[in-house]
Amino acid sequence: MGAMEGLGRLFNVVPIAAGAAVSLKGAAGVTFICTGNDTFTVTCADTFGGSYATPGNIITKKITNSATNGTAAWATATQSASNAVTISSGTVAFYVAGDSLPDGKAYVKCSVGASGLVMAVLHDLVPRRKADNLAIPGA
């Protein structure tokens, strides 16, 4: 058997993730990649359909890019500890580690204040599987 592709071995993706519940049960964490002049807020819950609440001030590092088409370099920045990230243009990426969430919280959402776009990339998957056999992250 040849080498496994990245999808299923290294990561899983939810391409349209604004306000969508994402399970971290099979991943070490999730990187949210966001675009638009907006505020992106992370909440968490015990169950998929549970009551989502602030996980605490878990985001202190963000990576920004002034372009959305790959024509600019990424730049690492810090922010005051929060559960939200705001950008005025371009792209921002930030990581939420599963172990940074309160005990028992396995589901996260990244909600937008207005019309921003969000993609969720779950990574460091356990167990690693062929893409066809991945767990459904939004269930």
Rank of each mutant, 00 (worst) to 15 (best):
G116F: 07
V85D: 06
T39P: 00
A45S: 15
S82K: 02
K25S: 13
T76V: 13
L10C: 08
D124E: 15
T47C: 03
S115Y: 02
A93F: 02
A114G: 05
I63M: 14
G19M: 06
V121H: 01
D38S: 05
A81W: 04
A131H: 10
A139L: 14
T64A: 02
G36I: 07
E5V: 12
P137A: 15
I33M: 06
A120M: 09
A72M: 09
L125H: 10
I59C: 03
A81S: 14
G2R: 10
T39F: 00
V121M: 15
K130C: 07
T47D: 14
Q79M: 10
S89T: 11
V42F: 04
G6S: 13
T78V: 11
G98T: 07
D132W: 06
L125Y: 07
A93G: 06
A45T: 02
G26N: 15
V92C: 09
A67C: 12
A97T: 01
D46S: 10
P102Q: 05
T43C: 01
S115L: 07
V22F: 09
A114T: 14
L7W: 04
M119N: 08
T71P: 00
K109I: 12
V92M: 07
K62F: 04
T68C: 11
G70I: 10
T35Y: 00
A17H: 10
A135V: 11
A114K: 09
